[in-house]
Design a protein around this nucleic acid. Structure first.
Lengths: 129, 129
DNA sequence: TTTTCTTCCTTGCAAAATACAAGTGACCAT
DNA sequence: ATGGTCACTTGTATTTTGCAAGGAAGAAAA
């Protein structure tokens, strides 16, 4: 059973307007959430793997975001081994469908932010998993 | 001359990693910034128009985001009349190239968030400006 | 069997960002 | 002079974030 604190942005999913952009931002509009989706698309899935990503997400933020994404149906948590039990998060179809958003960000970042890792390099990592 | 406070996320544009997604999120990763880009794509441009959008951005946040987007070269500010002088913000090429990001969010929102305004309706508004 | 290790978090607290309300200055019209 | 609009700025309370430490549940090592 997932416990999620009732903070302002967790209560109502579409509280500001009916604009799809606004609704998406209420769920994903912060500096960390889409980074988790990125990690999942790159083949990462455990709590420890997320923590080890180079951006260094704080562990309490990580736990909170994972809960929120589960509640939203973007990710699921499942044990991948017993003795000891270990968990892996994975994207649902709903979560995988965020790829176009990430993809557009990659293109924009590659074009306008100097020194970013290229789409080709990222796709190589994705293919290698 | 634009004054921008030196807050953590304003100092360095790419401080966490070279990942384009991470860099884009450092600039745009919050609940308001992309809403301004949306408004600009929809034909809005003045401070008052941004304030009147249905999401109700706080005025100090609005001022701060406009400054940040200017410094980043995503938008520009120009007087559109004298006597009295009034200002209008508009997207640069760099800003307009964020449209694919918004577009992907619209698609995802329309598919997964019930009750959101459809892409067709949004495009009608854009065409009407 | 006590200690140590790993994974997956939780808790406490300081710092930063955000939200809300009110105020300010420039300019113009009356 | 007074009042209005636009484009912000300021003050302050609330919320969120960042950082460090702690903790439970096994498993492995001593």
């Amino acid at each position: 059973m997932i416990k999620v604190e009732k903070t302002a942005r967790n209560i109502e999913p579409c509280s500001r307007s009916k604009c799809p952009v606004s609704c998406v931002l209420e769920l994903l509009g912060d500096k960390w959430t889409l980074l988790l989706v990125r990690d999942l698309l790159l083949g990462k899935g455990t709590y420890t793997e997320f923590q080890q990503s180079p951006e260094g997400i704080p562990t309490n933020i990580l736990a909170e975001r994972l809960k929120r994404l589960q509640v939203a149906g973007v990710i699921e948590k499942a044990p991948y081994q017993e003795r000891p039990v270990r968990y892996r998060y994975h994207l649902t179809d709903k979560g995988r469908d965020l790829y176009p958003v990430l993809s557009a960000m990659i293109d924009w970042g590659n074009r306008y932010v100097e020194g970013t890792i290229s789409r080709a390099e990222i796709e190589a990592i994705m293919a290698a998993k």
